[in-house]
Design a protein around this nucleic acid. Structure first.
Lengths: 204, 204
DNA sequence: CGATAGATTGAGAGTTTTCAACCGATGTGG
DNA sequence: CCACATCGGTTGAAAACTCTCAATCTATCG
């Protein structure tokens, strides 16, 4: 929906190339327009005062990012970093304003995205208090691997998404392999049965 | 900002009265327009599968709620419950659409609210992994009591906001009283020094 | 082939919750 | 206005979960 709207307006955007691990914007920076992903995977990371990292969201093809700060008119509360090499369109704040003034549908679609992201965040908030670390790790494994089957997620990234430690992720993955639900392949892994994994998340 | 816009449109709204503990809408219900608070305090609670409750947000005078589901076009992911008797304006989904079509500024302001709520939620997500329970409890105490000095927050509500248990809240409050930073008054309490409380949150 | 980043495993430590018992405040009906 | 019921608060001790730390191993890449 938003996709079609933005594709029609690509002349407003400029395309940029980013390398793996390249920072697109940093926590604390002033908002700098809207980003729209042509290819690649981008992680949104928050680093707390004490140095703890959290993987808040994962963005990829045909999705936008930078929208939260842009709309809120607040500095970024987290940093966007490329997990893979990426091609990304960028539109300046002023051109973005021009765009949604001319086409209010764009604003509505972005609101919708914000609303869905808020739901997801609040459900994670609840899950963090309610679910065991193992359960959260399994769910994160399923979520991340379903979303990006070909990307090799590190244990650290998975832990930072699940709200746990990479050692705990390792233990859960070993357990799942013993149950025959996943198979480790070098640093990567393959999932055989997404459904059963969640059932076994208390068994580990 | 949104306040002025909505006040001009009160003829679009109908006013309703709610009692303490009355449920305004339930988790799982289809979205039902927008709510705008004339008076009272409303809590947004999520109850997980296992029965764990989380206090996600607190709404009060001149603020809206129900906007997330309305914009996302998703069922409510949490329930809105009156913490005090409340007077609340309500606008139907169709009239709301009419309103923001005629006045796109309204939509922009609501997007802004969503964006700020997303930030707050994600920072809590990070804090939940990063900060000690005591620290989170102290911060919640400060946040809730600064926001509503006259409301008697129960230990349970504070715990459900902080992501802890009511017993832990009790222990933290006893510690703060021993330090002379708060004073308990029956079930209520008074804060003497909001600043110092956070400093002492690791000491407890 | 060596260097480095990432993965694995075990044992120990610490924080936080859970459970249980008891206390105090608040409000209602007789 | 008192008595009692109920809801919320308090405290202590034990248990559990998860993390931390350290040592070792393996994959990957120049």
């Amino acid at each position: 929906m938003l996709l079609e709207l933005l594709k029609k307006e690509l002349s407003y955007f400029t395309e940029r190339q980013y390398k793996r691990n390249q920072i697109i914007y940093n926590e604390g920076d002033a908002p700098d327009g809207l980003y729209f992903i042509e290819s690649g995977i981008i992680g949104l990371f928050h680093v707390s005062e004490s140095g703890h990292e959290t993987l808040l969201r994962v963005f990829s093809k045909n999705y936008i990012f930078g929208h939260r700060s842009l709309i809120a008119q607040e500095n970024y509360h987290a940093s966007s970093i490329c997990l893979t090499p990426s091609r990304i369109y960028h539109i300046s704040s002023s051109k973005f304003k021009e765009l949604y003034t001319r086409n209010p549908e764009v604003l509505f679609e972005i609101s919708k995205i914000l609303a869905k992201e808020l739901r997801a965040s609040e459900l994670r908030l609840s899950g963090l208090q309610d679910k065991s670390a193992n359960r959260r790790i399994v769910e994160s494994l399923v979520y991340l691997k379903l979303k990006h089957p070909n990307y090799t997620w590190t244990r650290k990234e998975i832990a930072e998404f699940a709200g746990s430690t990479f050692e705990s992720v390792v233990r859960v993955m070993t357990g799942l392999q013993d149950l025959g639900l996943i198979e480790k392949k070098g640093r990567d892994f393959q999932v055989f049965d997404f459904e059963k994994m969640i059932d076994h998340s208390t068994t580990l």
